[in-house]
Simulated assay, not measured.
Amino acid sequence: MTRKAQQANEYLQAGIRKQEGHDPNGAAQSYTRVLELDPHNTFAWYNLGVIAQQEGRTADARAAYDKALKIDPKFTSALYNEAILLRRSEPDQAIGILKRAIAANPKVDTAARLQLGLILADGARDDEAEDQFRRVVAASPALLSSVPERFRDSVSPSPTSSQAGSTR
């Protein structure tokens, strides 16, 4: 590892510690230093986006997520957070981003599908929303309570024959 890369990594780790220690300004300074050393560091861009999003600086958050996604178009955390950021203001764009996140990484499938279903339901796209909620509940039945009430009966897992009981 080059000295420059080592320094960037040290600043990144410092930024993470500061962020975890609830020092967003210090963390942002560390991430900015990382980017001075390595302008293509997706994690620094992503974390700057998280800080901006937490502070309500939507435009800054979106710009930082976009920079992370230019470097790594399949960076699912940035995709997911940007979709959440756009959920109310640009729901169609948020839907597209969540679909990209699901395609890029099946591990985010359940959380992304739940958010996708919620956005679709808000947009009166009930058939599509129901499909997403059905997939969410099939993968994680405990999330049924997160599904809007009007969809719960139609997406509830049906009991298997052993769960339905037997007469023996």
Score class of each variant (00 low, 15 high):
96 G>C: 03
147 V>R: 07
103 A>E: 14
21 G>M: 04
39 P>K: 06
68 A>Q: 04
61 A>I: 07
38 D>T: 08
119 I>A: 06
95 I>P: 03
112 A>S: 15
99 K>Q: 14
139 A>I: 03
6 Q>A: 14
143 L>S: 13
51 I>E: 05
28 A>L: 06
72 D>G: 00
142 A>T: 14
76 T>D: 13
12 L>V: 07
99 K>H: 02
100 R>A: 11
107 K>I: 03
108 V>D: 13
108 V>N: 13
117 G>P: 04
140 S>K: 15
59 A>T: 12
39 P>Q: 05
149 E>C: 00
152 R>K: 12
118 L>P: 00
154 S>I: 02
48 L>Y: 04
76 T>P: 05
143 L>I: 04
137 V>E: 11
91 P>H: 08
6 Q>R: 13
139 A>T: 07
51 I>Q: 03
64 A>F: 06
8 A>K: 06
74 K>Y: 10
134 R>W: 04
62 R>I: 11
75 F>H: 15
36 E>T: 15
122 D>N: 15
75 F>C: 03
4 K>I: 15
71 I>N: 07
82 E>T: 09
52 A>E: 09
20 E>M: 12
36 E>F: 02
61 A>S: 10
41 N>V: 05
104 A>P: 08
17 R>V: 06
18 K>M: 11
92 D>R: 08
80 Y>F: 15
165 G>F: 07
111 A>T: 11
86 L>T: 02
85 L>R: 04
31 Y>R: 02
150 R>F: 02
94 A>P: 03
24 P>C: 08
13 Q>A: 13
102 I>K: 08
140 S>F: 07
110 T>V: 15
93 Q>W: 01
66 D>Q: 11
117 G>D: 01
118 L>A: 05
63 A>L: 10
164 A>D: 05
19 Q>Y: 13
37 L>E: 08
84 I>P: 00
161 S>H: 03
123 G>V: 01
95 I>L: 05
19 Q>M: 12
88 R>V: 04
54 Q>Y: 02
68 A>P: 06
55 E>W: 02
110 T>M: 07
146 S>D: 15
136 V>C: 11
66 D>H: 01
132 Q>P: 05
84 I>K: 12
76 T>K: 07
30 S>K: 12
160 T>E: 05
115 Q>L: 12
109 D>L: 04
90 E>W: 00
16 I>H: 06
23 D>V: 03
106 P>I: 01
23 D>I: 04
135 R>I: 07
131 D>M: 10
